[in-house]
């Protein structure tokens, strides 16, 4: 299995999942630890101490510059992490422009032009009722994502070979790329004439 075509199957949600999992794990551990302390499992003496323990408060207050700098550092880390997560989650998926050299020099092809051509090719395959194509990845390593709806009774293997020889081969040739990873999602037995809700 090729990693780059596998990555094009769907937009990555790794950052979002990591951020949620990290915050969730921290909250879970903090809550459980507080419950354990409250239940007296770390000593009944500890359970009856105030939440803002005077020892800790005095130490922090008496530490002067160090405590403040630590608090400032914590604030900066939170700010940087939070902004990074929010920006990553809100940013729309990147659709690269493809660049290649022709006789006159460099030519940029918009992602839209590429995908429309591939989409038309894919719709021409026997048994394909709908096709949606997007170009994903980076400028250096673009990849195609194809969403094909197949009519009932279509032979999946026939669609595969048509895809490989007619659609993807042509797309590679047209773009002058040796490699163009592709992720194909098939909706089998898709009903025609029904609108996507």
């Amino acid at each position: 299995m090729s990693r780059s075509s596998h990555a094009a199957v769907a937009r990555s949600a790794t950052t979002e999942r990591t951020a949620t999992a990290v915050v969730g794990t921290l909250a879970l551990l903090a809550g459980l630890l507080a419950l354990v302390v409250g239940a007296g499992w770390l000593g009944s003496d500890r359970a009856t101490r105030p939440v803002a323990d005077p020892v800790a408060v005095d130490w922090l207050g008496g530490s002067g510059v160090l405590g403040r700098l630590l608090a400032l550092l914590l604030g900066l880390v939170l700010l940087a992490l939070g902004v990074r997560w929010a920006v990553r989650a809100l940013r729309p998926e990147h659709h690269p422009e493809v660049e290649f050299d022709d006789a006159d020099g460099e030519l940029r092809v918009s992602a839209r032009a590429v995908t429309e051509a591939v989409q038309d090719d894919a719709r021409g395959i026997d048994g394909v009722s709908r096709a949606r194509v997007t170009l994903v990845g980076t400028e250096q390593r673009p990849a195609l994502r194809l969403l094909l709806a197949l009519r009932r009774g279509t032979d999946v293997r026939a669609v595969w070979s048509a895809l490989e020889h007619r659609v993807l081969g042509r797309a590679r040739d047209a773009l002058g790329l040796e490699r163009l990873p592709a992720a194909v999602h098939l909706e089998l037995d898709a009903a025609e004439g029904h609108r996507v809700r």
Partner: peptide
């Protein structure tokens, strides 16, 4: 179906 192609 081919190297560099993932089908789902």
């Amino acid at each position: 179906p081919a190297p560099d192609v993932t089908v789902t």
